[in-house]
Simulated assay, not measured.
Amino acid sequence: MLPPALSDDQSVPFDDRGLAYGDGIFETVLLRDGAPVLWRYHMARLAQGCQRLGIPLLSQEVLDATWQGDPTAEFEVLKLILTRGSGGRGYAQPEQVTPRLLSRRTPFQPSVKRWQEGVTVRLCDLQLARQPRLAGIKHLNRLENVLARREWNDATIAEGLLADSEGLIVEATSMNVFWQQAGEVFTPQLDQCGVAGTLRAVLLEEGAVAEDALTLDQLADVERLWVANSVQGVWPVTKLLSASGSLLQRWSLSHSDPFQRLAHQLLGVV
């Protein structure tokens, strides 16, 4: 296996295919006391993304080296970007692919207030396109999410919910969606579009959630609603707004939230 063309936080060449075409994948990993949280699940999704896109997977030794360092920081976020590298004519890939790896660690502090007080979310006008070959992986072409996030500037709105072209709830702009119905917790099946988060993966593996479909019309009738990912943890949703800003539903916070408690235990949050 060829070594990556680049590592650490350096400049990207003009002809990098990730820059030119979004030809690559990325991972955003929570580091707690210098060690990655849910690393096995991030590596599994990275491997799946490489397989889907046909990018050579780097050695585990190279990937592990990105997070090894100063263990004194309580929380950091590690971002990994792996592109197909440079070369090729137009969209055609080079005959010999030399992947390019970039990584950066940044300080981070989770929003405990949002864990405790819940958040307001809104529906987005943008509809996600269906493309099963890209569904689940964290590829670099995230323009749909960028456009959806441009739909609001109100700092009191924490997230926007995205549906696909068939009217099924898929995800939030940067988090997965979970809901409770008849006492059970569900999350959308991401076989057509959307990012399959690592916290979502471990919750499914633990049997704490099940996959199901949720339409836009059904959303306001669920018993409870959460948005969550492996970096931010679980935010209970207390208010749901339409894309125009009108109130669609309000949920009360529960003093006991077994779903949030389990998810945070899996993230190492005491």
Rank of each mutant, 00 (worst) to 15 (best):
T198L: 02
L199D: 14
L199W: 13
L199A: 15
L199V: 15
L199C: 14
R200A: 04
R200L: 10
R200H: 07
A201F: 00
A201H: 02
A201C: 01
V202S: 00
V202N: 00
V202W: 01
L203K: 09
L203F: 10
L204T: 05
L204E: 06
L204N: 06
E205W: 03
E205V: 04
E206P: 00
E206A: 13
G207S: 05
G207E: 05
V209G: 14
V209Y: 14
V209Q: 12
V209D: 13
A210T: 12
E211I: 02
D212V: 01
D212I: 01
D212G: 03
A213C: 00
A213D: 00
A213V: 00
L216Y: 03
D217W: 03
D217R: 07
D217M: 04
D217L: 07
Q218P: 01
L219D: 09
L219C: 10
L219H: 09
L219T: 08
L219V: 11
A220M: 06
A220L: 03
A220K: 14
D221R: 08
D221H: 12
V222M: 10
V222H: 08
E223R: 01
R224C: 13
R224L: 15
R224W: 08
R224H: 15
R224K: 15
L225E: 06
L225D: 07
L225T: 06
L225G: 08
W226Q: 02
W226G: 02
V227P: 08
V227G: 10
V227M: 12
A228L: 07
A228W: 07
A228G: 07
N229S: 11
N229Q: 08
S230D: 07
S230A: 15
S230C: 15
V231Y: 03
Q232S: 15
G233H: 11
V234F: 13
V234L: 14
V234S: 13
V234H: 13
W235G: 04
W235S: 04
P236M: 12
